[in-house]
């Protein structure tokens, strides 16, 4: 974990709504693992504003990339950062996805939840399927990048403007059934809204598979000190405990989470 002064390399729009910020992040980028996140002090917000957490979209040759959408005050200000501007970044934070599993990997993304799953796809020792859902075609990001890596991509949108119409859990169920029919084990990795994560988790438990879910909670410290971003979790012995999403997570196995 470092508190690192990063310089912006490039900061292009990838669609009208989404931007990609690339940071010179040195050792922070080198140590980053898929599923981990960074905690950014956004220059231009007033000095007493809290940091904002972002999942890591990619890390390559000391360059750390974040794919994001302006959803609030912090990200709105962040959008205007120019190349060569500097920002204070704490990271890499959190536990990250396990990379040493087995079975057909099914990545399930909701909107910009695709970001950490792309980093995962670049580092996983096997290829599989990306299932990505969004409200409209505008919310479906980075699918060509997955295809370049050799992943199959299945898209679902609520309005049917891209891929099939409906929730991403519909094609997910289909994939699960076809893997089961072929006698293939699966391992799921998912990032997106809570309702989607919960549905993915339930499907995993029902099909006796593992699903690694990336939780998204508003955070304060990002390092496990303040206890603002907690989640109730099952212990193996059946009792429960209260974990910190930032430092005990953000990745939890579906069976651990008490929804």
């Amino acid at each position: 974990m470092f508190d690192f002064l990063c310089k912006v390399k490039e900061h292009p729009h990838v669609t009208d709504d989404y931007m990609l910020i690339q940071l010179h992040a040195g050792k922070l980028a080198e140590q980053a693992r898929p599923g981990q996140f960074v905690h950014i002090r956004i220059p231009g917000l007033e000095k007493t504003s809290l940091r904002r957490p972002f999942s890591i979209y990619n890390s390559e040759d000391g360059i750390l990339s974040i794919l994001y959408k302006a959803v609030g005050r912090g990200t709105e200000v962040m959008q205007s950062l120019q190349p060569d501007s500097e920002l204070q970044v704490i990271g890499p934070l959190g536990n990250g996805f396990p990379l040493d599993g087995s079975g057909e990997p099914l990545l399930v993304a909701g909107g910009y939840g695709v970001a950490p799953l792309y980093f995962l796809a670049t580092r996983l020792n096997r290829k599989g399927v990306l299932l990505v859902g969004g409200r409209t075609a505008e919310d479906i990001l980075a699918i060509d990048k997955f295809k370049e890596l050799g992943w199959r991509v299945v898209v679902a949108t609520n309005d049917g403007s891209m891929g099939e119409k409906g929730f991403v859990t519909v094609p997910l169920l289909r994939e699960l059934e076809s893997c089961k029919a072929a006698g293939k084990e699966v391992e799921m990795f998912s990032c997106g809204p809570d309702a989607m994560l919960k549905a993915v988790g339930e499907m995993a438990i029902k099909s006796n598979s593992k699903a690694w879910l990336s939780l998204d909670k508003h955070m304060v410290c990002g390092v496990g000190a303040c206890l603002a971003c907690v989640q109730k979790l099952h212990k193996p012995d059946g009792s429960t405990w209260i974990g910190r999403v930032c430092s005990d997570g953000p990745i939890f196995e579906a069976g651990e989470i008490v929804w």
Partner: peptide
């Protein structure tokens, strides 16, 4: 165990927890 979430909110010049 503490309180349920949300446990904090940012406000101008600080936060309420």
């Amino acid at each position: 165990g503490g309180n349920d979430l949300p446990r904090h909110v940012e406000v101008p010049g600080g936060m309420v927890n």
